[in-house]
Design a protein around this nucleic acid. Structure first.
Lengths: 342, 342
DNA sequence: TTGTAGGCGTTATCAG
DNA sequence: CTGATAACGCCTACAA
């Protein structure tokens, strides 16, 4: 089962390697029969081109680097799967690296991938902006690069982002319309662009409905369930539990709900909840969690398309794509729902 | 910021490319000062070797293919992360492909990776055994390949597996010791090796404690929450709810719990639960879910080590590594616990 | 200790 | 339409 080369095929057919090569790469003239003969024998022999040789010769690796902050949560797993499906269909392999929510690790990942001669990069940054100037310099050099999700709209690079402001606004407004008077937002890291945008959406809803600053709060948290729990502990200690929480993501919401339940609160009767970036678990917990769903598949596909455009044409202008999602209302945020229990 | 080559360094230093090459590959004799000079200039110039050229010349890609059945669930995400960390530290890249729980897709993935000249493969198979003869033939040819997790111990290939029988036995015995009399096992697919082994562990515990066949049942399910829900619907319809369930994984358990709660059952007062392959969500749900934790990090590392051994020495004998985990008892399976509610 | 030259498997240019 | 042949960047005998 050795790997055959074009030379093996050429020898067998008594033609030159150029002829064989041409048979595989449509663009040159070659007699139809010769071509078919080559293709057939190649197939019979189980020939597969050597990607290393091809890359070396073409000076393109057909590999694309993907850097995500983590992929323990579903969100980036789905992104990676979608990217893979799309890019493989276009003849590319992807090299995925995860930064473990660490800026330095992220920079190392990017450099490793660049050194490995990927043809382009799709980066979902961690929080922090230490690396941004470096990335921008690469973009200026013409290095094909697309950013995903966690990046400010204003930065002049190609990117695909979610309309966090809008959907955060919708989610918050839903809580207001349900009649909840005092609403707190567990915001994630304030220096994370998605958090910042969701905060803006939250504030906008408060403003529109003339809710005074006494009746809402924005509390910085992390992105983990644990951090939702910690905040609740603190609020319980200060006897400061509102009617409803809007959380930066489902995990923070689940942590908060857990801690509240442990302390005798009922959800949603005593406290209502809305999450974000819907996870599959949202409809399995009690009560089911209202959440905003992001179009992961589409985001990945758009990012892939943007990148391929850049790879194929170095002078592609910078482009920003903003996508929308959907908001699913479940029991956790509906007034009058009762906890599912006997 | 062009990519420099050894030739650029050689020209700059007025030495030959072989000297430069030797400076990077310790094994040849080279004067210490020359070597240091080369290394230093290389660093100053920002030189990085071209992996394609290196691969082509050495006939090894330093890429390792990883095929997993899915990576939406945490289990394989963790495996992939651990594999990546380990293999990158050894100078390899990994190409990850997921099979979407489909045998044909899996075979395509494996062949894509082989055609891409990976130096070896780590495969966590989907269920079904259609591809196994092909894999075994590759193994016989000497193709470096290690199997992970979902594979029968008896198959003569190198593999790293979890001791499902033992930990399934422990988990079941725990339920028996808590005093639950009628215990059902939601087993996952029976033709999946891990399911089969967990069934054996379950049966073994039943046998040891002289529980008669009237008082236990093994019910085939899938691996998803949805399928746990469906089974419960059916059991409720037949008025056939036992004292306790032992589930093939946490997701099936969570689905089942959800459906029981929706129908007015209390967990664990009316029905107790134990899951498997602990997920992070296990301690966030109400009640917290008892589960068996698998040593994902260690499994991945062992698999990586086995594979590297094979890559470095083609005549490495076949090896099977069986690992153990831990069982965490939480409220879902403790008699006398009450649901956390006001 | 260092240089020369051939090879790894392709692509692509230039003759024929 | 087809065949030589020179790259691509690196490794590694072999020679000096």
């Amino acid at each position: 089962m050795k790997h055959f080369t074009i030379k093996d095929i050429a020898d067998k057919l008594n033609v030159s390697i150029s002829t064989v090569s041409r048979a595989f790469n449509d663009k040159y003239d070659i007699k139809k029969e010769t071509k078919e003969l080559v293709l057939k024998t190649a197939k019979d022999m189980g020939y597969h081109p050597n990607p290393m040789a091809k890359s070396l010769s073409k000076k393109r690796s057909s590999n694309i680097g993907v850097v995500v902050p983590e992929f323990i949560n579903e969100y980036y797993s789905e992104i990676v799967i979608a990217l893979q499906n799309f890019l493989i269909s276009k003849g590319y392999q992807i090299l995925v690296m995860q930064s473990d929510e660490d800026e330095d690790q992220e920079l190392m990942n990017v450099q490793t991938l660049i050194n490995n001669m990927v043809d382009g990069l799709i980066i979902a940054p961690t929080r922090g902006s230490k690396n941004m100037t470096y990335y921008q310099s690469k973009v200026k050099e013409g290095y094909p690069m697309v950013f995903l999700n966690r990046i400010e709209t204003s930065i002049p690079v190609s990117k695909v982002v979610f309309n966090n402001l809008k959907w955060s606004f919708f989610a918050t407004e839903h809580l207001i319309r349900q009649g909840y008077k005092k609403i707190y937002h567990l915001s994630g890291y304030k220096d994370l662009s998605v958090s910042y945008e969701r905060i803006q959406g939250f504030k906008k809803a408060m403003k529109k409905h003339h809710i005074l600053e006494d009746n809402y709060k924005i509390i910085e948290t992390g992105l983990l369930a644990k951090e939702g729990m910690e905040v609740i502990e603190d609020l319980i200690f200060h006897h400061d539990i509102p009617d409803a929480f809007f959380c930066v993501n489902d995990m923070v919401a689940l942590g908060a709900i857990k801690k509240l339940k442990d302390n005798g609160y009922r959800v949603p009767e005593d406290v209502a909840f809305v999450g974000f970036t819907e996870t599959r678990i949202a409809e399995l917990v009690t009560p089911q969690l209202s959440s905003v769903k992001q179009p992961t598949y589409e985001m990945a596909k758009k990012a892939g398309e943007l990148l391929l455009k850049q790879i194929e044409n170095k002078n592609t202008p910078i482009e920003t794509i903003v996508l929308n999602g959907e908001f699913t209302i479940r029991k956790s945020s509906v007034k009058g729902s009762t906890t599912d229990l006997l």
